[in-house]
Deep mutational scan, measured.
Amino acid sequence: MADEEKLPPGWEKRMSRSSGRVYYFNHITNASQWERPSGN
């Protein structure tokens, strides 16, 4: 997916099972956040 290609290394887009909202998860640091991480 083009959107995921633009995410910084380690980040992936996921869907919250409880709320149905999109969030972002970093599998390197195990961090998660609602806001899209910047690629800069």
Rank of each mutant, 00 (worst) to 15 (best):
D3G: 10
S32V: 09
I28L: 12
M15C: 11
K13F: 07
W34Q: 12
G20V: 01
W11L: 02
L7C: 02
P37A: 01
I28G: 11
G10H: 12
K6F: 09
R14Y: 04
D3Y: 08
V22T: 12
G10Q: 11
Y24G: 01
V22H: 07
I28K: 15
N40P: 10
N30L: 07
M1H: 06
G10A: 06
Y24D: 15
R14V: 04
N26P: 01
M15R: 11
E12T: 13
S38A: 14
G20I: 02
W11E: 03
E35Y: 05
G39Q: 07
E4T: 09
P9C: 05
N26T: 00
A31D: 04
P37W: 00
Y24W: 07
N30K: 15
P8E: 05
R17H: 15
P37Q: 00
K13P: 05
R36N: 04
R21M: 05
K6P: 08
N40R: 08
I28M: 14
S16M: 07
S32Y: 03
R17E: 15
A2C: 11
E4Q: 12
E4P: 09
E35H: 12
A2R: 10
W34S: 12
N30Y: 05
M1V: 08
H27Q: 14
F25L: 05
R17W: 05
W11H: 01
K13W: 04
E12W: 02
S19E: 13
L7T: 00
R21S: 11
L7Y: 01
E5L: 09
K6C: 10
Y24M: 00
S38H: 03
E5Q: 12
G20L: 03
V22S: 07
R36T: 11
I28T: 13
Q33S: 12
Y23T: 05
F25S: 02
N40D: 14
E35G: 06
M1Y: 15
K6Y: 08
N26S: 06
R36L: 11
N40T: 14
R14W: 00
N30D: 05
P9I: 06
N30Q: 15
S18T: 13
M1N: 12
N26V: 00
P37R: 00
G10T: 02
R17A: 12
Q33I: 04
S32F: 06
A2H: 04
E12C: 07
R17C: 11
P8L: 02
N26Q: 02
K6R: 10
G39M: 14
E35R: 05
R21P: 05
A31S: 13
E5V: 08
D3E: 13
S19N: 14
K6I: 10
M1D: 04
S32T: 13
T29W: 03
K6D: 08
W34L: 11
K13A: 10
Y23L: 03
N40Q: 12
K6M: 11
P9A: 11
V22Q: 10
G39A: 15
F25A: 05
R36P: 13
S18Y: 04
S19M: 09
F25C: 04
R14L: 04
S19W: 05
A2G: 11
S19P: 04
S18G: 07
K13S: 08
M15A: 08
E4R: 10
Q33D: 02
R14H: 00
M15S: 06
N26A: 00
Q33K: 04
M1S: 13
E4S: 08
D3H: 11
H27G: 10
E12S: 08
L7S: 01
F25T: 04
T29P: 01
E5Y: 11
E4F: 06
E5S: 13
R14I: 01
E12L: 06
R17L: 11
Y23N: 00
P9N: 07
V22P: 09
W11G: 01
D3S: 14
S32R: 14
R36E: 10
D3V: 13
Q33F: 02
G39R: 09
P8Y: 02
R17Q: 10
A2M: 15
N30M: 07
R21L: 09
K13D: 02
S16P: 03
Y23F: 15
G10Y: 05
T29D: 07
S16F: 08
S38Y: 04
K13V: 11
N26W: 00
G10M: 02
I28Q: 15
M15E: 14
M1L: 07
M1Q: 15
P37G: 01
P37M: 00
R36Q: 09
W11D: 03
H27E: 11
Y24Q: 02
Y23W: 06
A2V: 12
A31R: 11
G39I: 10
L7G: 00
S16G: 05
K13G: 03
S38Q: 12
G39E: 15
Y23K: 07
Y24T: 00
E4I: 09
W34F: 13
S38W: 11
I28S: 14
G20N: 08
I28R: 13
S16E: 13
Y23Q: 04
N30C: 06
R14C: 00
L7E: 00
A31G: 09
R17M: 07
L7K: 00
A2D: 07
E12K: 02
R14D: 03
R36M: 10
P8I: 04
N26L: 00
H27L: 11
H27N: 06
